[in-house]
Design a protein around this nucleic acid. Structure first.
Ligand SMILES: [Zn+2]
Ligand SMILES: [Zn+2]
Ligand SMILES: [Zn+2]
Ligand SMILES: [Zn+2]
Lengths: 168, 168
DNA sequence: TTTATTAATGTTATATTATAACGTATCATT
DNA sequence: AATGATACGTTATAATATAACATTAATAAA
């Protein structure tokens, strides 16, 4: 199992998350002869400002402020599509939002734990889950191509807060 | 494990699916003192016309034709919200679409196998999956409240078609 | 059976998310 | 420099979803 849940849900040196993500992105783009242009890198950086997914129009606002000029939706969607293609980010369908991938080079489960309170979202890669879904698909003669697994609930911090307020 | 995948992916007497769904709906509404009004029942029937999810505006078109009068989006979303609340239908987030639930009274995994070719969508309830997701959540101290699991691929029929055309 | 209360619907407008279309600029190759 | 491919700017619009408020219908009380 591979997850960034401890980082996501606990105080940490987030600049290391950002740096790691940008380094991965540069490597991957070099490998695949893909161009990490200024816009694309900015969008990736914006998504890595936190561990909470951002919607396209939130990205638009932020990029617009960053560049101090108007930015059109198409600009965002193009950058997002590029990053999705490369696996540098993921789309969270239930939120219509996007989030940086913490391990773009690893096997994926496309499994996310989404805090419905604070929005923080951790990714999990888990072979057992993948194997189980594959075997369920096999039994149904369903040719599995991809998956989107979204868990909703409370992150450790928000669970603790809820616990406190119900006790106090 | 509980699934309607055989029904979904094979020729069958679909009127039985419809009748079962409507009977379940009536029972559930009676139990919960909820009113299955004409609009709500029509929307449920429309969703049960096939095993493929329908979007809100597809429902709007169809209900409009059925009633031979204009229908506003709000009408559809209200009916859909009602049916979702009762668990009579599900929302497929990746498709922005809705589908009837084949076993509204059972434990759920909210797991769907979606054919990217023909759109047919089967639901699966599977304790092992649920247990595994629960244990992953526990390890991460994540308080799991709900989940949305979507598998994309080819249904048996479309798999067979693809196989044929690649052979021929 | 009137009256009050609640639940459901009608209606209009608008918010949010996403794509289409087409021209321009930039980059890589020759 | 000429060419073709890729990326971006810009405008418009499509597709999905919600807000707000008036009206009607169903239920409950008087
Ligand atoms: Zn971090
Ligand atoms: Zn990832
Ligand atoms: Zn059927
Ligand atoms: Zn169901």
């Amino acid at each position: 199992m591979l997850t960034n849940s401890r980082l996501v849900h606990q105080p940490h040196d987030h600049s290391r998350c950002i740096n790691a993500a940008l380094a991965s992105a540069n490597n991957l783009c070099a490998e695949k002869n893909a161009r990490l242009t200024a816009t694309r890198e900015s969008v990736l950086r914006l998504l890595w400002q936190s561990h909470q997914p951002l919607g396209a129009y939130q990205l638009q606002d932020r990029l617009s402020k960053l560049l101090n000029k108007p930015v059109a939706p198409a600009t965002i969607y193009r950058a997002v599509d590029f990053l999705l293609q490369l696996g540098l980010i993921h789309r969270i369908a239930s939120l219509n939002a996007y989030i940086g991938c913490p391990f773009p080079n690893s096997e994926h489960s496309n499994l996310f734990m989404i805090c419905t309170d604070c929005g923080s979202t951790a990714e999990v890669a888990h072979n057992t889950i993948n194997d189980l879904l594959q075997s369920i698909s096999d039994k149904a003669h369903f040719t599995l191509k991809s998956q989107s697994l979204e868990l909703f609930g409370l992150c450790p911090q928000c669970s603790a807060d809820t616990e406190e307020s119900s006790n106090g």
